[in-house]
Design a protein around this nucleic acid. Structure first.
Lengths: 408, 408
DNA sequence: ATGTAGGCGCTACGCCGACAA
DNA sequence: TTGTCGGCGTAGCGCCTACAT
């Protein structure tokens, strides 16, 4: 718990009208609940590997625009940069509540002593709150006709116990969101058969957050017994960045030039990580990277496991076989380990789960299924790959095997 | 009219799910009506001067964050770049309807023949629609209690004539916004005394556009008699860019690096101009620049005129005296003409108009009044400058005198 | 166990003059 | 000329149970 990102004030000197800009780092437990169980943040003060290639992928995803070819090369910028993770602050978009993390990195010269004095197994798994539930909203939940139907176990696990002597049993619930705004709900247990419902206060929450059927709402109870709530929007609703500030090209150039300048001067630079929008992590602990690259010799034919997120925010493993290795972009990023593996998924594990994954994986993105290259992006496999796991194979991002690579 | 920006398909190859991204250039007349009478766009194919310094100012305004000191220098990037204006497309933010223009520029080597074969007075004034009105919404207009009260002359000028034989006279109005979305309104002439009102359909428009008292709505009638409508939001509501994609530093670096790379390779680059958010224009015709710099010898003590926008979208001139000249940022941008003039405004013209300007100028920004430097930004003079026009003086952006400099 | 629909009270949306300003 | 208000009718919000899955 002490290794989690700091929850102190952020670095930057923000502008004056700061109401609309999140200044401080947010409640870490709730942030991680909204981000999902797969999102792990390296601890502040540790050494990390930063992939500019992956960073540009996130920018492209935000802009909904592929990176164009005619941006300058930075020959001195390597495909990965070892950095000191100077600071991490957790944030949420004011309008959409989309979670993101701001990281400040300081490039450090690569120590040739390969794995000197690094803790072999840094505890990275973000502590998901134990008293927690998450439900995808139905049409009835979001309609103006009624309230919110709470799954029974969920209500019994995280809500304060009702006095069932009352008729009907009911209570007032107060929960705070990521912006520390408090919401009030009437929690009642009624109907035939009996069920838990949120009535009064629910509709204002739905309209204020602009929730639609398919979006998910989660409730947590912290160690002081206080309720908190967050949302996870469906992928299609992902905020499309208004391109009215910088052109896509300038953004990509900015990412590369900033990293290049910081590397050249060993100075601090700042990046944003959008875990639910980005196709993949591009800042990972040095320890995990070295463990995967140096300690494990990956080769074609090896067995492979990868973790996915189900709708209930549990994790599920899928198996496959490495069918290829190579650079994703040999021209621009030669000899990069970024997404360098192709994996063919097992018929057995993939096939029977395909239907449910299609519906349940909250990370599923329809756009990715149209990917002409048929590439597998992190936690968002293309439709073809799931339907025909026996085909030649699919490239997979490299950093995935830090997390899931295990010889079977 | 033929010299206006092209209204063809845009350049970039946008990503697939293009519904949320404006692809084509919008209706030029309506766009200019929303942008206001002071916004002039150089014609496509002409030569322009691009100020990176002004571009970074717009980025800083969008991010609500000052540019930090620790971004790299680009010694080869001059403070102004002569470019060919390759293309201009007009756009509006999908969520806020904020108008912006996308320009692609190609740096060209500066021709030393100072003002060779250039049309001495390019018709730049954007043709504001003649059949047009704009009204700032009152509390009654935006409340859920009623409809929209139309100023009498406005209704008679742009709306189809009512049949006053009916009791009450009423008709159905259809108007399209910048996104070509059609809105329906009931236009009725009733009340004691009689007045023009929009009733049914008005409230859905207000809530859909999230209009508040202080925002302005405008209606135009094109040459085919079709009604169009647009909005101009109050300044305080300016969209604050979510900083969840790129850090402010990376954005500034991206602007400079993109311009620098384009200048070095004589290749195309793309910028966005937000006329209602940016403090100033940073792409201006070469002809205007040369006229101001070469033909007119500006000096301290000269009389000065500047145009401001009133709420009714008319223009108003204010007079002053040049009290100083110098670089705004001598370190980073030495010898730049950007905002190099200080102007002290006349007591007579400023004083009696101060109160009305404070209320009426839709460009007035409260934030600017807190500017510690007391600097005058384009069309957004600081509060102090208006209240005390006799004080030492205020720097003014350079490009302003292309438009308004006239010895008095 | 929980999604949806019918029933229905009651809030507040929205149309109308009456007043000022 | 036009901003705001009191007046009211009614659409639809939202609380309830009955069913179906």
């Amino acid at each position: 718990n002490e290794r989690l990102p700091s929850v102190g004030p952020s670095v930057g000197s923000m502008a004056q009208p700061a109401e609309k800009v999140e200044k401080r780092s947010l409640n870490s437990e709730l942030w991680h609940a909204c981000a999902g169980p797969l999102v792990l943040l390296p601890p502040v003060g540790s050494r990390v590997v930063y992939f500019p290639q992956g960073h540009t992928e996130q920018v492209a995803a935000s802009m909904q625009k592929e990176v164009d070819a005619h941006i300058p090369n930075y020959p001195n910028l390597p495909s990965r940069l070892v950095c000191l993770l100077d600071n991490v602050t957790l944030h949420a978009d004011i309008e959409t509540d989309e979670v993101y993390a701001q990281m400040t990195l300081i490039p450090v010269p690569p120590t040739n002593e390969k794995d000197a004095h690094m803790s072999p197994d840094i505890e990275m798994r973000s502590r998901q709150p134990t008293e927690y539930f998450c439900k995808t909203l139905t049409a009835s939940d979001t309609s103006t006709h009624g309230g919110f139907s709470i799954p029974r176990r969920a209500a019994e696990k995280v809500f304060p116990p009702l006095d069932y002597a009352q008729i009907p049993p009911a209570q007032e619930l107060k929960a705070r969101d990521l912006h520390d705004q408090e919401w009030h709900f009437r929690h009642i247990y009624r109907g035939q058969p009996r069920r838990h419902l949120l009535t009064t206060g629910w509709s204002v929450f739905v309209s204020a957050k602009r929730l639609q059927a398919g979006d998910a709402v989660l409730f947590t109870r912290d160690n002081k017994g206080q309720l908190q709530l967050g949302i996870r929007r469906q992928n299609r609703q992902q905020r499309v960045m208004p391109s009215s500030v910088l052109s896509s090209d300038s953004m990509h150039i900015g990412v590369l030039a900033a990293a290049n300048y910081a590397a050249a001067t060993s100075s601090r630079f700042t990046i944003f990580y959008n875990p639910r929008q980005s196709p993949s992590e591009f800042v990972i602990p040095v320890a995990k990277y070295q463990k995967a690259i140096c300690h494990l010799q990956v080769s074609v034919g090896m067995r492979f496991r990868m973790v996915f997120e189900t709708e209930e925010s549990s994790v599920r493993r899928y198996m496959g076989t490495i069918t290829g290795m190579g650079d994703l972009d040999p021209i621009r990023w030669p000899n990069s380990h970024w997404r360098s593996l192709k994996v063919g998924w097992d018929e057995s594990t993939a096939d029977e789960e395909t239907d449910s994954m299609l519906k349940k994986s909250s990370f599923w993105s329809g756009e990715n299924s149209t990917d002409a290259l048929g590439r597998l992006t992190f936690r968002t496999p293309s439709l073809d790959s799931w339907m025909r796991p026996k085909q030649p194979g699919l490239p997979m991002q490299e950093n995935e095997h830090y997390r899931a690579l295990e010889a079977a």
